[in-house]
Write a protein that binds this DNA or RNA. Structure first.
Length: 924
RNA sequence: GGGGGAGUGGCGGAACUGGCAGACGCGCAUGACUUAGGAUCAUGUCUCUUACGAGGUAAGGGUUCGAGUCCCUUCUUCCCCA
């Protein structure tokens, strides 16, 4: 027996060899078909965790497979390097974000090399490098020059104590995460991209193969609705435009509701109502939009004292303000039709407003005074002048006869017009942070603004900055940065907001193509060959953000002519560019998350009132462990094993106890100053999801040191449903470890006989071809676990046969060669080493993928399964291509079937022919 | 609150268009070899039943010759908006 399998001896060796030979450098080669595979680039948090391996190594396996299939494969890697954690580190540890980030990039790049992936490191891009963000800024300029970027008003999180804007992540439960100070919602001027311009096009997925849930989520996120815009007038004559999806209910509008932020509120408010209105506006400012959209919430609102005229029937209706109307959706004002809209109904009931029925269900007698809930359904229009009797179906938009007729009439009479509305809002890209790409804008003394000229790009982030622990961006108090001059040399102020990091990640796969190129974001010569991205892999959590921004970006680039040159080069090379620049990635697949394994939960002390076994806790304290329980403590204490909302399951003396944390409970969490809330407790107790702060990290470096990279790769691809992910099980890795050990021993042992047993060799050949089919299919379908299961099965078949000398020298070599080729994408190092040991030519990764031969894979005899009423009753050996007539006859004549039919006649006879590796079946 | 998933042995999971549920692996059990075993090898491993057989894919209902797969109701759970 040869030496034992020791991954440490071979993995590093081959990684260096591949690197030295530039084995994975991808070069444009028009004579070969290309394959551009991208996996989402990581944020350089400092530590590569198992989740990165889970996302990247299967993508690598597939890229390797495509290469063996004959494609010229580009598989690059980079870092999404701007973002808040670097700034937090700067405040907490007094390290400059750039330094922190680059150190992390260094470290992670090194860790990533141990994956043995075929990343082309010469194409690495790091989004915080000036060489990269120069082009992020350039994109901003192009969007601005083409009316895709503009300045507008938006609600932001404003801290009155700190006098600064906070990012959403910095706000928890309406308070600043760090200081616990209250945060209010305030309208401020921000930069936007015209996201909704491509809303309709983004609803069209016909050109891309993306997972169905992603398409549904994006569709709902865009939220297209059809309806009408109608102009009401205040009694003073000011127009108040509203948007409605139900213009057929206009006659039932008995009041109007404006968002508290609506510009007309002040003018409409009467003196008598002024103080109430102002108090309400202040109260509304402290609620977040998510809270305001919640339908369960008790409706609140205040009468302005003003009235408006309903343009369809001249009715004088009161105007209210309420926080369930959002300034950022539609027009910030609604007509309220309480009879047919549930939220309006609840509002009207609460404040005693009139409810007027205008859609009557067939044969029904709805009455506004007595109805218990809004009736949004089907019926005939009533109390609607000339439209009385028009049928309102359940269809939306123009398909509904009532809506259709009313829209026509609104347009004829000039009261309103047909309109499409989107839930999607424009993309707010301003961030009040330091560590992001600067916005290349200068504000001049006269109030106008100008763009920073191209030859001055990038606007560099200053390095000599101090971070104050307030959450305020240092750019706002760094004079050398913001004090500048305009094109005429007059004093001017530079924009101190930076761009959303989603901007950086919306175009990085273009930069990979030519990372050093300085005449544009990418070189058309490279782009013409590689684009578009053929396969994109990453987490589904990016469904409505990154993946939608990316589509918008590509469409905008296309319309601004940024691909024109690329298309020219394509045509020069006889490649038709039609439709290739409408979408960034043709095929998308998502992996799930690998969760941390078991770990000790947080230990808490809780006291309060008992109801049976359950404790309603009004005081909860997070402590280090059992040693921190005060003597004589009489509440519930123990480890939290589970948390659902504010229900905690606490393991106390081996018994699980349920603790409900009441909303006003007094909570204390070490490390978070001031008075803590239930929400912070919830936040703190995210016990499952893996992250460094939660202490249940699986460190891939340690696993690699113990088992080797190939085993870790194989385990990650084998033990999970890739799309689902799941908790890490430290024991399961033994399976793949044994597999590789046994493969190693088997190959190293060499052939045990000069000539083998012909029948066994035929069986082996069949198994090999079945395996080629199954492994290829698994790789095509992103079903790594079934592919590896097939390889394990092959090993299980080969090993005893080889050991017993049933495979002759020649067949043995042929079989092992094929098996190693099939393993190469998954476990590249051991495949290379064993390949070399049996005399294969370097490198196995440059060999063609084995051909599948269906004839060789075919079984000679298969079981015919005979079922009665869907239950298997018997089986018999037949030829795989048995005809229906033969099979049916065989079944009907068989003893088992006759016995189960019990002399009766079959209701129906169904024959299912053999297909896809399954046996033929007869059901009677 | 809204949106999207997922519930299959002790565990991870398989079952591609409805067609023998539990492939492959972990764990476990029994035996073998060992000074030893967290090594290796062999066999077994959904439940009930002596057997014939019956039941079984979160719960309940439906469609079908046939349902883990399709439809309806309920429950649980994870993710995203955060």
């Amino acid at each position: 027996m040869s030496e034992k399998y020791n991954p440490q001896d071979i993995e590093h060796k081959w990684q260096e060899q591949w690197e030295a030979d530039k084995l994975y450098r991808a070069q444009v080669d028009w004579s070969k078909p290309k394959h551009y595979a991208v996996t989402m680039l990581p944020y350089p948090s400092g530590d590569l965790h198992i989740g990165h391996w889970f996302a990247m190594t299967p993508s690598d396996a597939r890229a390797r497979y495509m290469r063996m299939k004959g494609f010229n494969v580009l598989f690059p890697m980079g870092f999404d390097a701007f973002g808040l954690p670097a700034e937090n580190a700067a405040v907490q540890r007094n390290i400059h974000p750039a330094k922190w980030t680059h150190a992390n990039v260094e470290g992670m790049r090194g860790q990533m090399r141990s994956m043995g992936a075929m990343f082309d490191w010469e194409r690495e891009t790091v989004s915080c490098d000036p060489d990269y963000y120069r082009w992020t800024e350039w994109f901003f300029k192009q969007f601005y020059l083409n009316d895709l970027a503009y300045r507008g008003e938006a609600l932001v999180n404003w801290s009155p104590t700190l006098q600064t804007v906070l990012a959403n992540e910095q706000v928890i439960d309406g308070k600043d995460e760090r200081t616990g100070q209250p945060v209010i919602q305030k309208m401020m001027t921000q930069w936007f991209f015209r996201y909704t311009r491509y809303a309709d096009e983004m609803l069209d997925f016909s050109q891309i193969d993306w997972p169905e849930p992603i398409k549904i989520m994006q569709t709902n996120w865009i939220g297209r609705s059809e309806g009408a815009r109608v102009v009401f007038k205040s009694e003073q004559g000011d127009p108040i435009e509203i948007y409605t999806t139900r213009p057929d209910t206009l006659w039932g509008a008995t009041f109007m509701v404006l968002s508290p932020e609506h510009p007309l509120v002040e003018k409409m408010t009467t003196d008598a109502q002024r103080s109430a209105v102002e108090a309400y506006i202040q109260q509304a400012a402290s609620a977040t939009e998510i809270e305001r959209m919640s339908e369960d919430r008790e409706k609140t609102g205040v009468f302005t004292g003003g009235y408006a005229i309903n343009p369809v029937n001249q009715a004088r209706i009161p105007v209210w303000i309420a926080d369930y109307v959002l300034i950022t959706y539609g027009t910030g004002a609604i007509m309220a039709v309480p009879a047919h809209d549930q939220r309006d109904f609840e509002f009207a009931r609460k404040f005693g407003l009139k409810i007027q029925v205008v859609i009557q269900p067939e044969g029904g007698t709805l009455d506004g005074d007595t109805m218990a809930e809004a009736y949004p359904g089907v019926g005939y229009m009533i109390n609607s002048d000339l439209f009385d009797g028009t049928y309102a179906s359940e269809d939306k938009g123009r398909k509904n006869p009532a809506i259709n007729a009313v829209i026509d009439w609104l347009e004829e009479s000039g009261i309103g017009r047909e309109a499409i509305n989107y839930r999607l809002r424009d993309w707010l890209i301003s961030r009040q942070r330091y560590w992001g790409s600067p916005i290349p804008i200068i504000y001049r003394e006269d109030g106008t603004m100008e763009l920073v000229p191209d030859d001055q790009l990038p606007v560099l982030l200053p390095e000599d900055v101090d971070f104050m622990p307030t959450g305020r961006s240092p750019l706002t108090y760094h004079e050398p940065f913001f004090k500048t001059a305009d094109s005429e040399g007059k004093p001017a102020r530079r924009e101190t907001d930076t761009m959303d990091t989603f901007m950086c990640s919306s175009w990085y796969w273009y930069r990979y193509l030519s990372p050093g190129y300085d005449k544009g974001p990418f070189d058309p010569e490279d782009a013409a060959y590689w684009l578009p991205v053929d396969v994109y892999t990453g987490g589904a959590e990016h469904a409505t953000m990154h993946l939608l921004y990316s589509r918008w970006f590509t469409k905008a680039m296309r319309d601004l002519g940024m691909f024109d040159e690329t298309m020219e080069v394509m045509r020069d090379n006889d490649r038709d560019p039609a439709g290739l620049f409408d979408e960034p990635m043709l095929l998308l697949r998502n992996q799930g998350q690998v969760l941390g394994g078991e770990r000790p939960g947080d230990f808490i002390l809780a006291t309060g009132r008992y109801e049976g076994e359950k404790l309603f806790a009004d005081r909860v304290e997070v402590v280090g462990g059992p040693n921190d329980v005060p003597a004589g403590f009489d509440g519930v204490f123990g480890e939290i094993v589970k948390r659902t909302e504010n229900l905690l399951t606490v393991k106390m003396a081996g018994v699980n106890r349920v603790v409900e944390v009441v909303p006003e409970a007094q909570v204390s969490i070490p490390g978070i100053e001031g008075e803590n809330t239930v929400n912070q407790l919830k936040h703190h107790l995210e016990i499952q999801r893996m992250s460094k702060s939660k202490g249940n990290v699986i460190n891939p470096d340690e696993l690699v040191a113990e088992y080797g990279s190939d085993t870790v790769r194989a385990y990650l691809m084998f033990a999970f449903d890739w799309e689902k992910g799941g908790p890490w099980d430290p024991d399961g890795i033994r399976g793949p470890m044994r597999w590789l050990n046994e493969v190693w021993d088997m190959v190293m042992a060499g052939p045990q006989a000069e000539t083998g047993d012909p029948a066994s060799e035929r069986d082996i050949e069949r198994k090999v071809h079945q395996t080629i089919g199954r492994v290829s299919d698994g790789l095509e379908r992103f079903s790594w676990n079934t592919a590896i299961a097939a390889l394990m099965e092959l090993k299980n078949t080969l090993r005893p046969a080889a050991r017993e000398g049933k495979i002759g020298r020649e067949a043995w070599h042929e079989t092992m060669r094929t098996m190693l080729l099939l393993m190469a994408p998954f476990t590249p190092h051991i495949a290379e080493e064993l390949w070399a040991s049996i005399g294969g030519a370097y490198s196995i990764h440059q060999q063609p993928w084995p051909d599948y031969d269906a004839e060789k894979a075919k079984e000679e005899r298969v079981m015919l399964v005979m079922l009665v009423n869907g239950k298997p009753r018997g089986e018999t050996l037949v030829a795989p291509d048995i005809t229906e007539a033969e099979a049916v006859q065989m079944a009907l004549e068989s003893e088992v079937v006759r016995r189960f039919l019990n002399g009766g006649q079959p209701k129906k006879v169904i024959f299912v022919p053999a297909r896809g590796g399954q046996e033929p079946k007869v059901n009677v």
